[in-house]
Design a protein around this nucleic acid. Structure first.
Length: 258
DNA sequence: ATGGTAGAGCATCTA
């Protein structure tokens, strides 16, 4: 199975790129983030014609996550299953895709350390761990994939000194929350296959960041040990960050024997 | 210190 994640920064603006990518990458499962549309606008029929079942959790202008699968799709959760109040923002969807439990996440950006949105980000990561513990088991094949808006370590950013005290994505607190989630029983599958620095999944649209190789690796595929052991290949498709109207994120995918 | 780009939607907000 090929399992992928891609923040497409508006599915309306980028549907032609997603269709193109599905056509040549042929993932079995694709997690999408930042669809920026309501559920009634989601092009389920287009994906169906391409052989994919889908589930979308949208809210309109912002956020929005989805899972596409051509290996079956069921047992859907459209919000946290932690018993708390539902998250008002469309940032999480869980589904069973064949042998795999899949969760597509769009972790809050945080904006800046002194912003309320940063506290929301930290609370959201706590809830994500509880959610995964409710819907999945570490000894079974589980993937939690998406835009985490966290660079796990300094080798996941182009220049650690470019981040000041108020900068998000690199703070010890959010890295610690991610580490707590991983501690539950997950592996950063891409990093396990590629230990070298300078491998990024996101580049700012501004200032020619992509061509200057100034990016961050914030789009992660976390898998349980059964997934990690079955993984034969992990890649970031940088080509999808090029060409006409690219997203600011590249797709990340893994190939597994599952 | 600022601005640089992109999307949604029409003034800014978000990233």
């Amino acid at each position: 199975m090929r399992v992928a994640t891609w923040n497409i920064n508006s599915l309306k603006a980028r549907l032609f790129r997603v269709e193109e990518w599905l056509g040549y990458a042929r993932p079995d499962v694709l997690c999408l983030q930042e669809t920026k549309m309501s559920d009634d606008q989601f092009p389920a029929l287009t994906f169906s014609e391409l052989g994919y079942e889908s589930v979308h959790v949208g809210q309109g202008r912002w956020n929005g996550v989805a899972i596409l699968s051509r290996v079956g799709l069921g047992d859907v959760h459209t919000n946290f299953a932690d018993g708390g109040d539902p998250d008002p923002e469309a940032r999480l969807v869980t589904a069973r895709c064949g042998p795999l439990s899949v969760t597509s996440v769009y972790v809050p950006n945080g904006r800046s350390v002194d912003d309320d949105h940063y506290a929301y980000k930290l609370r959201w990561l706590d809830r994500l761990r509880v959610h995964i513990d409710e819907v999945a088991r570490p000894d079974e094949p589980v993937v939690v994939a998406g835009d985490f808006n966290i660079a796990p370590t300094d080798i996941d950013v182009w220049d650690p000194s470019a981040f000041d005290a108020n900068s998000t994505h690199v703070t010890p607190a959010e890295r610690e929350k991610l580490a707590r989630l991983i501690e539950w029983g997950l592996v950063d599958v891409f990093r396990e296959k590629h230990p070298e620095p300078g491998l990024f999944s996101w580049w700012d649209y501004r200032g020619g960041s992509f061509h200057m190789r100034k990016g961050m690796r914030i789009d992660l595929i976390l898998g349980t040990p059964p997934v990690a052991a079955a993984t034969t290949l992990a890649l970031i498709d940088r080509n999808a960050r090029k060409g006409k109207q690219p997203s600011d994120h590249a797709p990340v995918f893994i190939d597994t024997d599952l």
